[in-house]
C-alpha cells in the first residue's frame, strides 16, 4: 500500500514536502492516467502521495494590483465560471478535455504536467504569467517560461509546491485561439495557436503570439513580437512571409499517433497568417471605421 499524506494547511503540506520524497497530486487527471496499470488495478505510484488539491490556500482566485492570482488547486470548471478570468482564457479552457475531467483537473496540475500539448500553457506564456513556488524555506516567483524546462520537465524542486499562478490583468482587443484536435469533443491538441494584439491608429501597440504542441515547449518569441510592435497592420501583412519564416525556424514538431510534423508546422504557420491577414487586418479596419463614426 502506498502511503498518503493529506495535510490540512499549506504550511503542513510544505513541511511534509520537505520531510519526505513524495509526489504532490491535485485533481489526478494526468497522474492517474500515466500511472494506470489496467482493469481493477491500483495505479503504479512508487512514492508516497501528497494530496494538495483540497488545500484552502490553493483555492483562492483574486485580483491584487491588477494581477490575477490563481491558486494552483483551482479546477478548470471554476476558472470557466469565474468573472475574473478573461474571455480568451475561458475559450481555451472550454476546449480542454471534457466536463467531468474539468471538474477534477487543476490549473497547477496542467502546468506541472508540462506536456508540450498542455492547453493552458500558450496563454500563460503569452501573458508572461509567473508561478509561485513555495517551500519551508520561502518562495520563488519565476516566469512560466523559466519554470517549464522541457517536455514533462519543470524546475520544481523536491521541497517545493507550485501554489499560485499570477497573470497580469490585461485584455487585448484582438484575440484568436485555435485548437486543432483529432475531433471536436474531448481531444488532445495536435496544434494550437494563440494570437492577441492591441491596435491603435492602424499600428500594432502590443502583440503576443504563442504556439502549442509544435515544439518541446510552447513557442513564443519576444524578439519577433518586438519587431512587429509599432508597425502598421498593412506593413505587417505585406511582410507576412518574413514573419512566417522566422517562426518556422522555431516550430519543430514531431510525428506521433495524433498527427504529422509536416501538418503541425504548416497549419501553425497558416494560422499565424490567418491571424494577421484576416483577424488583425479586418479588426483594425473595423476599429478605424468605428472611431470615425464616433467622431462624426
Amino acid at each position: 500500500m502506498v502511503k498518503g499524506f493529506r495535510p490540512e494547511t499549506l504550511k503542513e503540506a510544505l513541511k511534509l514536502r520537505a520531510q519526505y520524497d513524495c509526489l504532490p497530486i491535485a485533481g489526478g487527471t494526468d497522474l492517474m492516467v500515466q500511472k494506470a496499470r489496467g482493469f481493477a488495478l491500483k495505479p503504479d505510484f512508487r512514492k508516497p502521495l501528497l494530496f494538495i488539491g483540497h488545500l484552502p490556500e490553493l483555492q483562492r482566485l483574486e485580483v491584487i494590483n491588477r494581477q490575477i492570482h490563481i491558486g494552483a488547486g483551482v479546477i478548470l470548471t471554476d476558472l470557466l465560471n469565474s468573472e475574473t478570468i478573461p474571455d480568451i482564457f475561458k475559450e481555451i479552457l472550454a476546449l480542454m478535455a471534457s466536463p467531468p475531467s474539468r471538474n477534477l483537473a487543476s490549473i497547477g496540475g496542467n502546468i506541472c504536467n508540462a506536456s508540450p500539448a498542455g492547453d493552458t500553457l500558450p496563454y500563460l506564456y503569452a501573458m508572461d504569467a509567473q508561478v509561485v513556488l513555495q517551500s519551508t524555506d520561502g518562495e520563488r516567483i519565476i516566469p512560466i517560461a523559466g519554470f517549464i524546462t522541457g517536455p514533462k520537465q519543470t524546475d520544481l524542486k523536491n521541497s517545493e509546491l507550485l501554489t499560485k499562478i499570477i497573470i497580469p490583468q490585461t485584455e487585448f482587443d484582438i484575440n484568436m485561439y485555435r485548437k486543432i484536435g483529432q475531433r471536436k469533443g474531448m481531444s488532445l491538441t495536435k496544434a494550437a495557436f494563440l494570437g492577441m494584439a492591441n491596435v491603435a491608429d492602424g499600428k500594432i501597440q502590443d502583440i503576443r503570439i504563442a504556439f502549442g504542441s509544435v515544439a518541446q515547449t510552447v513557442v513564443r518569441s519576444g524578439k519577433i513580437e518586438q519587431s512587429i510592435v509599432g508597425k502598421s497592420t498593412k506593413d505587417i501583412v505585406k511582410n507576412i512571409s518574413e514573419i512566417s519564416r522566422q517562426y518556422a525556424a522555431l516550430i519543430r514538431p514531431i510525428d506521433d499517433a495524433r498527427s504529422s510534423a509536416a501538418y503541425r508546422k504548416k497549419v501553425s504557420l497558416r494560422l499565424l497568417e490567418e491571424f494577421f491577414v484576416s483577424n488583425l487586418a479586418k479588426v483594425s479596419n473595423l476599429r478605424k471605421a468605428q472611431s470615425k463614426g464616433d467622431i462624426e
Binding site: 492516467v33 483529432q182 475531433r183 471536436k184 469533443g185 474531448m186 481531444s187 488532445l188 499517433a257 495524433r258
Partner: peptide
C-alpha cells in the same frame, strides 16, 4: 474521417482511446 489506426512494424500506433478517436456528441 477521424478514426485513424495504423501499425508500425506490426505494432499499433493508436492503441488507446486517447490516441484512437471515435466521434463524441460534439462531432
Amino acid at each position: 474521417t477521424i478514426e485513424v489506426m495504423k501499425t508500425d512494424e506490426g505494432r499499433l500506433i493508436q492503441k488507446n482511446l486517447t490516441d484512437y478517436k471515435v466521434p463524441t456528441s460534439m462531432d
